[in-house]
Design a protein around this nucleic acid. Sequence first.
DNA 1: GATGTATATATCGTATAGATATATACTGGA
DNA 2: TCCAGTATATATCTATACGATATATACATC
Lengths: 175, 175
Amino acid sequence: MDTKTLCLGVISLGAASGYEIKKAFEEDGLNHIYHTSYGSIYPALTALTKEGLVVCSAMAQEKRPDKKVYTITEAGRGALLTALSAPPAEDKFRSDFLFTMFFAHLLPPQHVAKLLDERIAWYEGNLAKMESSQGCNAFVHGMGLAVYRSAADYLKSHRQEFLDHLSSADKLVAE
Amino acid sequence: MDTKTLCLGVISLGAASGYEIKKAFEEDGLNHIYHTSYGSIYPALTALTKEGLVVCSAMAQEKRPDKKVYTITEAGRGALLTALSAPPAEDKFRSDFLFTMFFAHLLPPQHVAKLLDERIAWYEGNLAKMESSQGCNAFVHGMGLAVYRSAADYLKSHRQEFLDHLSSADKLVAE
DNA sequence: GATGTATATATCGTATAGATATATACTGGA
DNA sequence: TCCAGTATATATCTATACGATATATACATC
């Protein structure tokens, strides 16, 4: 799913600026589903405009920087439908944290404990945010909640076991 | 977590070739935790060798292409420890599928049903593979299992509800 | 008065993903 | 038997993506 499609999707829900598209991937229903950055969004919007899939209208704002609002065209709706009809790529979970835990035996136990606690807090913080906002698509929102909840639950219920396992393995090495 | 660190981590568990490092991120315990490609691995191995963090020994093989086996150095173990001690980035879940489901109202219902069934099968297939292999790190392996299981369970238990919701929303539009 | 956050666009360099090229050997089906 | 597909193995190329940075204004907070 390239950035052009991501932008087109957001704009299909209503005219938006690059800044607002970025926010949609941070706050709104798209959070934790896909990620993107200004470095990809702005060039994508320029390309979409050139291809006639969106139109741009500059908006002068009082007390705010000028805003460029992009609106989807009929051709844009067609292109979005085509892109969404292609077989979706595999779901990918990427975790610096789990990679680090894979090598926890190399790290001081108190550092591992700190990392575990921080990640539990991170998941719980996100869960609280997600639970308070209902998201625009209940099915997608619910899936995010289910996955994050299981991650938080797993970390909480296996934290001590893992730390115990690490320290007992350490003792064996010391012997 | 850059590719150099990913390679260094795998090599720290035992000497490995670029091909074997790739496999570690596809089959072994690192599957579903982090992803990388030859386009990143081979340049990373070259850089690691130049920096003296790994050493390369060419291995001629009978009936197989030559293999370059990389072994970690003491400096490499130090560099790995330093990299693992840095604060880990946020966990990121990226799903073409969920992004598509976010716009399910634009797609034919039977196509949405097909996508749901395929994704359920995909999660269940992965779960079966993960359950049969025990992984080298029980904690990390267990987290992967927990998350995938919750994803599969969620999709199975909300599939029909979602499809019903889509068709009823469709009827409202038609009226 | 200084610092931080929010709004808003844009670009730059590096890193990454994914496809492709090359080569050999084995396996399974038509 | 031949052909296609899969597995082993390295390497590179291009397009894209990420993350940091620059710029500018306004507002809140300390």
